Simulated assay, not measured.
Amino acid sequence: MSNYKSNSYFSIDVNLLNSIPVDNLVCITVAGNSMEPVLLDGAILIVNMGDRFIKDGKIYVLRQENIIRVKCLSYTSSGIVLKSYNQQYKDEIHTFQEFSNFEILGRVVCVSSLL
Rank of each mutant, 00 (worst) to 15 (best):
L40C: 06
L40T: 04
L40R: 08
D41C: 09
D41F: 10
G42E: 11
G42I: 09
G42W: 11
A43R: 09
A43P: 06
A43W: 09
A43Q: 11
L45G: 03
L45H: 04
L45F: 05
L45P: 05
L45A: 06
I46H: 01
I46R: 00
I46C: 02
V47G: 11
N48R: 08
N48A: 07
N48L: 05
M49V: 11
G50K: 12
G50L: 10
G50Q: 10
D51P: 10
F53E: 14
F53D: 07
F53S: 10
F53R: 08
F53P: 00
I54L: 13
K55I: 09
K55F: 04
D56R: 14
D56H: 15
D56Q: 13
D56E: 15
G57C: 02
G57A: 04
G57F: 03
K58Y: 11
I59Q: 01
I59C: 03
I59R: 01
I59H: 03
Y60M: 11
Y60T: 12
Y60F: 15
Y60W: 13
V61D: 07
V61A: 14
V61H: 07
L62Y: 00
L62N: 01
R63F: 01
R63P: 00
Q64P: 01
Q64A: 09
E65K: 07
I67Q: 15
I67C: 08
I67M: 11
I68A: 05
R69F: 03
R69I: 07
K71Q: 05
L73F: 13
S74Y: 15
S74P: 08
S74L: 12
Y75P: 13
Y75Q: 08
Y75S: 09
S77L: 15
S77Q: 14
S77W: 13
S78L: 06
G79M: 09
G79D: 09
I80C: 09
I80G: 15
I80A: 13
V81C: 11
S84W: 12
S84T: 12
S84H: 14
Y85N: 13
Y85C: 06
N86L: 03
N86C: 03
Q87A: 09
Q88M: 07
Q88A: 08
Q88L: 06
Y89C: 05
K90E: 12
D91Y: 01
D91E: 08
D91V: 03
D91K: 06
D91L: 01
I93F: 14
H94M: 05
T95R: 04
T95K: 03
T95Y: 04
F96A: 04
F96N: 05
Q97S: 12
Q97I: 10
F99A: 00
S100A: 06
S100N: 06
S100G: 03
N101Y: 01
N101V: 01
F102Y: 15
F102M: 10
E103I: 05
I104K: 07
I104N: 13
I104R: 07
I104W: 10
